[in-house]
Design a protein around this nucleic acid. Structure first.
Length: 410
DNA sequence: TCTGGGGTCCTAGGACCC
DNA sequence: TCTGGGGTCCTAGGACCC
């Protein structure tokens, strides 16, 4: 049975949320970049408002570059908490109108409205109702572009085709023509590299892509080749993914305000980052069997490696020890460390601690106590002594000891 | 004053086993 | 004197998405 899939895409998501929250920002060129407390100068634009886009500011553009082309640009640090609250409201509205909802990213969902809408006319009415409810739930500044089509691939192309505030319906009979009108770069699955490779073959449009034999595409692009052949006709067997699936990996990466040149600096930051990853891991009751570490140097060269562990782990210190063992033999400090990325994967549900050693059992009690503190007092409620400067410790030690004492009682 | 940070999936190639 | 072949596991690295 043919399906009716709707793709809903928040326009300039983070920027709209900021403009909704602060009326002074409405109608102005703003960009969301970095996070509160982070270094904005080494960040890129996460989202540009409609007004900023009109002046040439684009997503992923370096903030200094954005400022250069749009001097009046107001840069706002990102507020993940705020956005996830709005996303929750967004999802609640979607669930009201469809059984199957796939959250594709913070600001995009696919919903299957086959049974709820009945036909494409019904789906258009549904889209208008969703738009009305979203305005009520998220604010009048927030607009969405909606695409309706027989599959995810075309629904996404459709929503992308009219921005902002578009509603594009592509009935099955119109798929071939509609797809032909779209640029290759708009296809979800054709990135810069594939686009370039296709251009070298003389393929710069859907029409020219259709002329290449499927066998040739498969030879050149392996499994992606077959997908390309289908996509050029708007054919896809994509299904809505279940939202409740556990994550496959959890990671954290950070660009330092200044490149690091010493081992203690690297180790200290690595440990703090591993603690954050471990905290999220435990929050989802998971343990990890693979640790991956990635480094970007001042010259923008990079290096990374990964290791499978025999015993699954979920505490920051152990993750950090493994990451350091991987990283240290290949680390080149002369180049300056710009970014470190740490990621854990091969995730499984946590089992109760089984170690026979008293030291390990004691450590898991400490980790649990610290989790309790962090849940109650937030992300910066405790730090390892080894990850903070002496000055910082002197300034804040009283505060920390108070909280640690409380944690032990808990 | 040099391009972030969160993910997923696929493939190549080496090591190892029988 | 010349080292096949299938399978699996693992890491590195690249491509893609937002």
């Amino acid at each position: 049975m043919p399906r009716i899939i709707m793709h809903i895409d928040f326009n300039s998501y983070f920027a709209s949320v900021e403009q909704q929250a602060n009326p002074h920002l409405r109608g102005k060129a703003i960009a969301v970049a970095g996070k509160a407390g982070g270094d904005i100068h080494r960040s890129v634009v996460t989202t540009a408002s409609r007004e900023a886009k009109a002046r040439g500011v684009k997503t992923a553009m370096a903030t200094w570059e954005a400022k250069k082309i749009c001097p009046e640009l107001i840069i706002i640090p990102g507020d993940p908490q705020k956005y996830s609250e709005i996303t929750e409201r967004f999802l609640t509205v979607c669930h009201k109108y469809a059984d199957a909802v796939e959250q594709f990213s913070t600001d995009e969902v696919f919903i299957d409205v086959t049974s709820g809408a009945g036909n494409y006319f019904g789906a258009s009415i549904l889209a208008l109702m969703i738009r009305r409810d979203l305005k009520a739930a998220c604010g009048s500044v927030c607009t969405v572009s909606i695409g309706i089509a027989p599959n995810k691939l075309v629904a996404k192309l459709a929503s992308e085709s009219v921005k902002p505030n578009g509603l594009t319906v592509v009935r099955p009979a119109d798929v071939e023509d509609f797809v032909k009108s779209r640029p290759l770069a708009d296809f979800c699955g054709i990135g810069r590299s594939t686009e370039k490779k296709l251009a070298e073959l003389g393929v710069t449009s859907v029409a020219t892509l259709r002329q290449l034999p499927r066998t040739q595409l498969i030879n050149l692009f392996k499994s992606q080749g077959s997908w390309l052949a289908d996509a050029s006709h708007g054919l896809a067997t994509d299904v809505l993914e279940n939202d409740n699936e556990a994550p496959k990996s959890i990671g954290h990466s950070y660009t330092f305000p200044h490149d690091l040149h010493t081992i203690p600096e690297v180790k200290k930051n690595l440990l703090a980052m591993c603690d954050r990853v471990a905290w999220r891991l435990r929050g989802q009751h998971l343990v990890a069997s693979r640790v991956s570490v990635y480094v970007r140097y001042g010259d923008f060269g990079s290096d990374g490696c990964a290791k499978l562990l025999h015993i699954p782990i979920n505490d920051g210190l152990t993750i950090s020890q493994n990451a350091w063992a991987l990283l240290s033999p290949r680390l080149n400090l002369h180049r300056g460390v710009r970014l470190i990325g740490i990621s854990v994967s091969d995730l499984k549900a946590t089992k109760p601690p089984t170690s026979l050693f008293r030291k390990d059992r004691r450590m898991s009690r400490v980790v649990h106590a610290l989790d309790v503190v962090q849940t109650k007092f937030g992300q910066n409620s405790w730090h390892r002594a080894s990850t903070v400067s002496t000055k910082f410790l002197e300034r804040t030690s009283g505060w920390h000891y108070d909280h640690l004492a409380m944690a032990n009682k808990t």
